[in-house]
Design a protein around this nucleic acid. Structure first.
Lengths: 341, 341
DNA sequence: TTGTAGGCGTTATCAT
DNA sequence: ATGATAACGCCTACAA
């Protein structure tokens, strides 16, 4: 059986309290006693039991994370940032997958509360009202990544999706494109998608280009989806000269449909993506994209959680709807070019 | 403040013990009392405190995971399997990133022990002696994914890397290839790599083909690496007709180097990968690969951890060197073809 | 400086 | 069937 603080106390001939003191560096302990304790700790290979510690201290240095799916490079990038920041601040991570299911989200959220974690970061594609209301009533700090919905009362971190979409649309227009398609996520109340659409719309409007409804396609962030959607367009022979996909995997799906039918990118059609996951640079032609600072976004979320605790010895939590916007950038690679004559 | 079991006891007019009983469904409680308790629980929105629970029960339904990096599709695939299995069995996940650093691995391993997690699954590329010895001395169940090293005394789950490499090498030989390159991970004591190399060697030997040392390249599992290595070969104009990469990202790096220099795949050179992450099917040309059942591997690891606990009311843990081998398969796609004349 | 003792929220063992 | 009460391992006033 593992040694407890009592064993250390016995071996060192001191009291539990003193042992506790040296462990926590609190209060003053004589050098002599300190040494005795340290020796005993080493001899017994004693490690304080975190469970007991958390119980009595009413706190925890663990941050909970809810993610739709693992092995997704977009979330993976954010996770990297979260992990690094947690590492630096001495926090641990408890990770749960929701599968995009709101009942799972709620279940995990409750679990996090029961365990009194120091905070939660949630990533989700769609946000159901049940989840929103659960989030709003959370007793521990919670932050939403890359998404914001009306009624949601918690801090958020993301990029300026309106501007990003606006910029990349303008980029294509400057390249001479007038026939621009938009492949976006399904029509839900997805704030990112809504903002992106506005940016797209605005850029077109400012240039006197009207939106062709047949070129605005909805689908999940899956390559098979955009592959099929692009195929439809090809079959109808109703082709744009450029397509904007609001995720990189969708962009790749579009490219594959095009390549598999013998089209050339970007000579025949330009394709641009969103996010800039590793795939975007690895694919050939490499993808022109809007780059999101995924790692920074994750790190920022952690910082926010930590700061939501500080300043209040009372244990009270700062709960406002603060939003952090990080800056994006446009990376031009091989998949986009001038509009064909 | 959140309600405790005592609040429920007070409100329901019963004792803490009785409340505990209905919560745990243990022992028999009269219907009448049961209802009272349930009502009180609902009224107070009481949720049992897991921290306290774990403390007294000396256990935990959390599984710790150590992973080199997040956002890697290979580990992501395994994580998906782990997550699903944990979900089914009511376990939670605590995830830590090692960054491939053995001191981090050890730190996390100790943290898992302190928290008395029910088990640990570790993924690592290289295994330093310090980590191996820490693993061997762990007091909680621990499983190594996809890797085994001499001296390591813990269960392992992986595929038969020898056979996999043997099969894919033979596949290329049957396609008429005699000049076959192998891009593998750095020369460390990496059991997978060693086994794979043996398989490669054996297949060539059985077909009377001798190994050309200049075609066996070592590098990390990064596309930039294999890209550079392939470029070297191109510059020396010392080209094989096929290359086997022991990871998909390495294969893509090779393909990119080739494509960027104007080579055709597979007409000029065939390229095959290992693992079959999403990228393999998404890339063009899509990659012929050895498919690893990543998800099953993750699930199997969880099952093993759970079974290591069962059967022993004593709390003793089964600790043998059991190895689980799951079956792989060869998926033929676009990146491989007959050897050029 | 050090020790005593009272929790933290639950479970589990006795009695009743 | 139900209720005290002793753990669980640790922290922290309060005393000494």
């Amino acid at each position: 059986m593992k040694a407890t603080i009592k064993d250390v106390a016995d071996l060192s001939g001191l009291s539990i309290a003193t042992v506790s003191r040296v462990i926590n560096g609190a209060s003053v302990v004589s050098e002599k006693s300190k040494k005795k304790v340290l020796d005993a700790i080493k001899a017994l290979d004693f490690k304080p039991n975190q469970v007991a510690r958390n119980l009595v201290m009413h706190k925890n240095t663990t941050i909970g994370i809810i993610i739709p799916a693992m092995g997704n490079q977009f979330y993976g990038g954010i996770l990297n940032g979260i992990e690094e920041a947690c590492e630096n601040h001495g926090y641990d991570i408890m990770l749960c997958r929701s599968g995009g299911d709101s009942s799972n989200e709620i279940r995990h959220l409750e679990m996090f509360e029961e365990r009194k974690l120091s905070g939660v970061i949630v990533m989700a594609q769609r946000l159901k009202p049940e989840t929103v209301s659960k989030i709003n009533s959370m007793e521990i700090p919670i932050i939403m990544m890359n998404r914001s919905t009306s009624g949601l009362k918690c801090p958020t971190v993301s990029i300026d999706n309106f501007r990003a979409a606006y910029e990349i649309t303008n980029y294509l227009i400057r390249k001479g494109h007038k026939k621009i398609a938009l492949f976006r996520n399904s029509m839900d109340i997805d704030a990112c998608g809504v903002e992106q659409y506005s940016g797209f719309e605005r850029a077109l409007a400012e240039n006197g280009i009207s939106i062709e409804r047949g070129w605005v396609k909805y689908g999940e962030f899956k390559p098979e989806n955009s592959y099929a959607l692009m195929n439809e367009l090809i079959e109808k022979n109703h082709l744009p000269t450029a397509v904007i996909a609001t995720s990189d995997v969708m962009a790749v799906g579009v490219c594959n449909a095009l390549i598999d039918r013998g089209f050339r990118i970007p000579e025949d059609i330009s394709v641009v993506g969103f996010n800039d996951i590793q795939l975007a640079g690895l694919y050939r032609p490499s993808l022109t994209v809007i780059h999101q600072p995924l790692k920074s976004m994750g790190g920022e979320a952690v910082n926010m959680i930590i700061s939501m605790h500080k300043g209040d010895g009372s244990g009270e939590i700062i709960k406002d709807g603060r939003t952090v916007i990080l800056s994006h950038s446009l990376i031009e690679r091989q998949s986009s070019g001038n509009a064909p004559e």
